[in-house]
Amino acid sequence: MVVNATGCMEVTTTIFPFSTWKVPFLHNAFENAAATISGVEGAYQSLKKQGKIAENIKFVAFGGDGGTYDIGLQSLSGAMERGHDMMYVCYNNQAYMNTGVQRSSATPRGAHTTTAPAGKVIAGKQQQAKDLTEIMAAHRIPYVAQTIVGNWPDATKKFEKAFSIPGPKFVNIYTPCIPGWGYDSTSTVKMSKMAAETCMWPCYEVENGKYKITYNPGANKKPVTEFLKTQVRFKHLLKDEAVIAEIQKATDDKWNWLLMMEAATNKA
């Protein structure tokens, strides 16, 4: 059973009167995917208790970063706290791409968007991205993960694991957007891999409080400029050494923090 918030995925997979989904599909507004799937799952639990339904049904909600990080955060937090047996997947392309590339709280520092434009007064988004994966981990739910579309084994492993665990799960998947980021259309896999290789988007999971980094570039960790220089949205930044240094430091801090958390939560 799939619930989908408004976004590119909803628009492209359910062009009326068709559906690409082989399972029941329900759409609701941006802010409501987590609440709506909670309702469907609640009804399922009720029917199950009444003996009116026997099968085991998996519930998954999809939302983009705008619908998840911003307007949908309240309903997502509520669903996770109540403990519904569901998985929420945020497909994260770091802005409101479906409405024309407006900034979201997932947009990284410095990126150009149509509402955080790179101009003479302000050079792109002034704030750091919100760390939603950690906000979800702070809900102490059974499973939280970050992955990328460019690492198929990593992504499928995490989704399979999430489906096997009862209770609320959250997966944040990094999904580059060709028009929104401004890169060659053959490079989507490369873009997401580069994000992992620079540790700007680390692949990791938190299972029952235990951190596990699932892709560690180790000594091959690339500088953030390797990622930034490939996209039009960061073009204006490349000469701005101070902002580049700030982005590098924030990236390193998060990565070191993850290494520390992995070590701290896996002590024998």
């Binding site: 409405t99 024309g100 407006q102 149509t114 955080a116 434009p117 007064v121």
Partner: peptide, 19 residues
């Protein structure tokens, strides 16, 4: 907040207001 068909208003505002 983004929503079509009024997105040009916040977009243009994001240019004009700082100016």
């Amino acid at each position: 907040y983004p929503i079509t068909p009024q997105n040009e208003i916040p977009e243009y505002m994001s240019h004009m207001m700082p100016e």
